[in-house]
Design a binder for these strands. Sequence first.
DNA 1: GCCAACGTTGGC
DNA 2: GCCAACGTTGGC
Length: 154
Amino acid sequence: MRYWLMKSEPSDCSVDDLAAMPEQTVAWYGVRNYQARNFMRDQMNVGDGVLFYHSNCKEPGIAGIARVISIAYPDATQFKRTGKYFDPKATQEQPRWFNVDVQLVKKIQLITIKELRLHPELARMRTLQRGNRLSITPLDPAEWKFITQKLVQN
DNA sequence: GCCAACGTTGGC
DNA sequence: GCCAACGTTGGC
């Protein structure tokens, strides 16, 4: 069992968009960074915990708790010739990009990045490090526990 | 909108 | 295999 922080731009898919999806589930397509891909392909498992993070928006922060509900499989968008995620170097036989399915567990009151930065317990979180741009980062179990047990309002 | 940081590309 | 140029990310 691992824990992850996954960024989504709310203009693309917000926590409310996710809540409105069938089964409150979304395929995490469009990842085109090898490190982030490898996390999904090599390390994610069904049941892993996910912090659903709103990035590149007016109020960045953790907007929901979610979970991984599939192992990784080829990202369908890499084969769609007209789409923005098309990858001419990918083939059905040798797909290059993968994604998992993520299901919302619950929407939470937004925990802003500003608040996250206030807690020494979270000082080492990958997402808070200077220059970090990875859209998927692993969380320490202690960080997950602190956020889900101490920061999430009931 | 700015810009620092980072990843990728491609010429050599 | 180096590295400059370029494109993207994402907080501010």
